[in-house]
Amino acid sequence: MSGPTHETPAIAVNGLECRYGHAVVLSGVSFAVRRGEIFFVIGGSGCGKSTLLRNLIGLHEPAAGTVKFFGESLADAGDARRRELLQTFGVLYQGGALWSSLTLRENVALPLEEYTPLTAAERDELVALKLAQVGLTGYGDHYPAELSGGMRKRAGLARALALDPDIVFFDEPSAGLDPLTSRSLDELIRQLRDTLGTTCVVVSHELASIFALADRVLMLDRTAKGVIAEGNPHELAKDGADGRVRAFLTRGENQP
């Protein structure tokens, strides 16, 4: 087998099927996310976006099909290799998913302690930087329970970025944030891509974010149980063939 070239997509999904027990939520999902791309997964409520995300990051074993990160599949990797692969991506969970028994500082520092050769002083510095980047300077000693929902989400982002992963998954990053914070989060995502070349996969409903950020979108549908469109959001909104896609991207308002 040849090593990964620069053409190997960051994520390659082939014929993925997601199920809960016998209920098929998604089937025949295939797409690829290029390196350094900002890729949105969109679709109506309950169409399986979170399910797709959980299948991608290995929290659920796909019922069929493959998911490859830089040409390698989590499912086929041995235990040690799987741990290494897991470090190539970070996940921002919908509710932040901070560890409630640790302070914010400790939450962000834990992956650094586990996986990097940094000294304690360097770690503290870096944690302070990450917290500053998400606008949480001065909250390092707070416990998650003492924060608002939006702050928890931002802290979750700081933690997801702790190891400067190659790929970051965002589950509804702007849900529960005020418009300004939500915009600064968008800005942060863009910076992440522009500076570090991070590949970003975002599950979102926020039309403003979709149009401002997305290089490409993947649209899922509940009745089709799969992908109904893929492409640049501006093009899809203008002359996408599918009425459902246009309706979603224009909030059902009639096109001129």
Binding site: D124, E125, L126, A128, L129, L131, A132, Q133, T137, G138, G140, D141
Partner: peptide, 15 residues
């Protein structure tokens, strides 16, 4: 970020 890093650390000390 390097500027921010040194700044953030100073601020953290000031708490």
């Amino acid at each position: 970020m390097a500027d921010q890093l040194t700044g953030a650390a100073d601020q953290a000390d000031a708490m």
